[in-house]
Amino acid sequence: MSTQRIKAIILQELYITKNSLEIIIDLFYFSVITIVVFGLVSVYLTGTNNPLSAQYILVGMILWEVIRITQYSISVGALWNIWSRNLSNMFVAPLTLSEYILATMIAGMIKTGIILVLISVIASFLFKFNILSIGVVNLILALVNLTIFSWSVGVIILAIIFRYGQRIQALAWGLVFLFQPLCAAFFPVSVLPEPLRTLAYVFPPTYVFEAARLGLVNHSTNWNAMGVSFAQNIVYFVVSLLFFNYMFNKSKDIGQFAKNEG
């Protein structure tokens, strides 16, 4: 594995991000507007004697952005190169698949880190909500778990894009939102109807959101929930890499990878 080549992909991600209004809107603008809207909703809920629900929404929103931004960065990052007909150029350089994926993961983490700080500061100043109130250890564990989960989702979507081409590119933006209700990002799992309640516990973020909400109440670290989430994440991550490897090879077998750029 070459650090130079990983650096090259991260550098390209940085250049594309700073030059693309669409990315700035998709990531920074969307995140800021969302936190402001949800912050105002939380203010309203606080006024209706439901302060805990208000905090649930804000903590859910801030943590949800970790999933959205990291996954977006991995999946859509490849699309920018496919749309520019540049992906082949990169893969005929001595770039390995693992270097490429690792670089997009790191780039996603950098973007997520910047936006997380930004929206946390906004939440703190405008809505008097401190994300650290879920507990520092809880927050770190939540970030680790959500990041790994979003890597898995990002890699799976990337695999599907490489295999089926641009015709399913909408998944890069849309698929992740399927997990928003299923993982009970903004409300307790108990709110979900029974079949979905059971299904929710199949996804690692469910445990994270539950642990974060519990942290708001008792300020303790929910090691058990975070541990289950982490264990599930390992399985998801390994499966996503195997799936990616299979789909990438399939794509090269049928000639789709070279055709992705039209």
Partner: peptide, 26 residues
């Protein structure tokens, strides 16, 4: 490799593209 059908990354400058590929090729 060079081809009329594969272009470089359109959103970034020529210099940025070349820096990326120079780094890729070490």
């Amino acid at each position: 490799f060079t081809s009329a059908f594969n272009t470089l990354q359109g959103r970034i400058s020529v210099w940025e593209n070349l820096i990326v590929f120079a780094t890729l090729y070490n």
